[in-house]
Amino acid sequence: MNILIKISTDSELISYEAIALAFTLATFDHVVQLYFYGDSFYILADSTTRAYGMIQSLELYDLPYAWAGFREMTVAFDDKILDNIRYFDGKISDKLDEFDSVLEF
């Protein structure tokens, strides 16, 4: 299955659970795309959060670069995050047909 996981929360626990779910699904050969937007910006910008560390492990699970819906990321994020996330220029709604399931956190 192709699964899109949209993360907009500023809760460390919820973002951790969402990324952990992505890792688990990828382990079972699902194609998973993470999309960060909204208040999740604060979780990724904070180097003390679990999500900050987990986003650096996408390659270990054969996950593609995460998408981000915020332009200011190049100013606020360090290279460890920027190496694993790309700005999504466009409307995420235009991509929804590519996914079998969309999960929102």
Results as ranks from 00 to 15, higher is better:
residue 53 G to V: 02
residue 32 V to K: 04
residue 2 N to R: 14
residue 45 A to Y: 09
residue 92 I to F: 09
residue 95 K to E: 15
residue 38 G to A: 10
residue 101 S to N: 10
residue 88 F to G: 04
residue 41 F to M: 13
residue 18 A to Q: 06
residue 18 A to N: 02
residue 11 S to H: 08
residue 95 K to R: 11
residue 33 Q to L: 07
residue 18 A to L: 06
residue 19 I to Y: 01
residue 34 L to Y: 00
residue 28 F to C: 07
residue 98 E to C: 06
residue 60 L to R: 03
residue 13 L to P: 00
residue 86 R to V: 15
residue 46 D to W: 02
residue 11 S to R: 12
residue 91 K to D: 15
residue 76 A to H: 15
residue 61 Y to R: 00
residue 56 Q to Y: 01
residue 23 F to P: 02
residue 57 S to L: 11
residue 66 A to L: 02
residue 10 D to A: 13
residue 78 D to C: 08
residue 1 M to I: 06
residue 62 D to L: 05
residue 89 D to W: 12
residue 92 I to A: 03
residue 42 Y to H: 14
residue 38 G to W: 08
residue 70 F to M: 15
residue 8 S to W: 09
residue 47 S to N: 15
residue 77 F to H: 07
residue 90 G to F: 10
residue 78 D to W: 03
residue 10 D to N: 15
residue 42 Y to S: 13
residue 17 E to C: 12
residue 40 S to N: 08
residue 55 I to G: 00
residue 16 Y to S: 14
residue 71 R to S: 15
residue 31 V to F: 10
residue 99 F to S: 06
residue 96 L to K: 11
residue 82 L to Q: 03
residue 48 T to F: 07
residue 75 V to G: 04
residue 9 T to A: 08
residue 14 I to C: 06
residue 35 Y to P: 05
residue 40 S to M: 07
residue 91 K to G: 10
residue 83 D to G: 02
residue 40 S to H: 06
residue 46 D to C: 08
residue 41 F to R: 08
residue 71 R to N: 12
residue 8 S to P: 00
residue 50 R to T: 10
residue 57 S to P: 01
residue 86 R to A: 07
residue 4 L to R: 04
residue 1 M to G: 08
residue 20 A to F: 09
residue 83 D to W: 00
residue 34 L to D: 06
residue 51 A to T: 10
residue 68 A to T: 14
residue 9 T to L: 06
residue 7 I to H: 04
residue 96 L to Q: 11
residue 42 Y to I: 09
residue 76 A to F: 13
residue 16 Y to Q: 12
residue 9 T to D: 07
residue 47 S to K: 14
residue 104 E to Q: 12
residue 79 D to P: 05
residue 24 T to Y: 13
residue 4 L to K: 10
residue 54 M to D: 06
residue 32 V to A: 05
residue 6 K to G: 05
residue 8 S to D: 15
residue 32 V to Q: 09
residue 56 Q to G: 01
residue 86 R to L: 11
residue 7 I to C: 09
residue 7 I to K: 11
residue 49 T to P: 05
residue 42 Y to V: 08
residue 76 A to T: 13
residue 14 I to G: 03
residue 72 E to V: 11
residue 20 A to T: 11
residue 7 I to W: 09
residue 55 I to T: 04
residue 46 D to Y: 05
residue 63 L to R: 03
residue 99 F to E: 09
residue 32 V to S: 04
